[in-house]
Amino acid sequence: MKTILDVQDLSVSFDVYGGVVQAVRGVSFSVKEGEAVAIVGESGSGKSVTAQTIMRLIATPPGKINRGSIVFDGQDLLSLSEKEMQKVRGNKIGMIFQDPMTSLNPTMTVGKQIMEGLMKHQRLSRSAAKKRAIELLSMVGIPHAESRISQYPHHFSGGMRQRVVIAIALACNPALLIADEPTTALDVTIQAQILRLMKDLQQQTKTSIILITHDLGIVADMCDRVIVMYAGQIVETGTKREIFRNPQHPYTKGLLNSLPRLDQAKDEPLVPIYGTPPDLIKPPQGCGFCSRCDEAMRICETDVPEMTAISDTQTVRCWLQHVRARPTEMDSGKGASA
């Protein structure tokens, strides 16, 4: 399948009062046509910044894109002018935000908010745009779309508003949909509904999805491939099955251990990951996770591990899995001493 998005060596930093935060440090990944990729990680791991950089939505200054390229559909988004970028946003790439309560304009009818993008990108007339907006609203499962289109966001519940946000994002049939924690602000039953909707829509429209979340349960439900981020770097990538069944990075293992399981004894406590992520104003010299890692070695403090391929689809950034750390290599007497 064709690659729709290819991010290479992306580095983003922010000037803040205390110094420069290295929010994203050399992130590379790609998304294929029709694929759903999850980016998981805790707060501050750089996943939202990565997403907003793809849309070029971070404010510069204080933000700064230091290195890298973002090739979408054959063009490098980082080299586009703001005007050209506006033709990509909402047209070829749609975005869903975290909090549906605040991400709609309270003084504008939902219909107008959906129509705006259509009228700009597809040059639809007012009446054509309205017709399409009604279609979109019924597509995202809002009943009585013809009458609800002239209502304001405060007439909608949280879940319904998120449906409107999804309708806005999908209005122009984008090739890529970036969903930045789309269900975090919703309660669990509504979460399930919204995820079901997104999954159905993806199957209908064949849109690629980047789903940003810290909820692994959602990942299992939605995505084909998983990217785990920590301290501004990708620490592990793999198919859904590989990440859940055969996690390699201690951080990924820690994330999975901190989830409750149905087959777990009731009195068995969850295992948290102790400690806090490093301060990215002074990024650690070695592996970002080593201060919290039970298996850390001396080399972890001084050198950043490279990405190591475990299989065709799974890669991990950890010294434990490094070629030189593998038993076969060790037996032949080459590695381990490093």
């Binding site: 506006q86 909402g90 047209n91 935000f97 605040t102 991400s103 709609l104 309270p106 705006e116």
Partner: peptide, 21 residues
């Protein structure tokens, strides 16, 4: 506000966002 970000993500230009949103 978040809805300004939504408007930007729709591809609207800066002046339109100020005026309309």
């Amino acid at each position: 506000a978040d809805f300004i970000k939504t408007a930007k993500a729709k591809g609207l230009g800066g002046h339109l966002i100020v005026w309309r949103h």
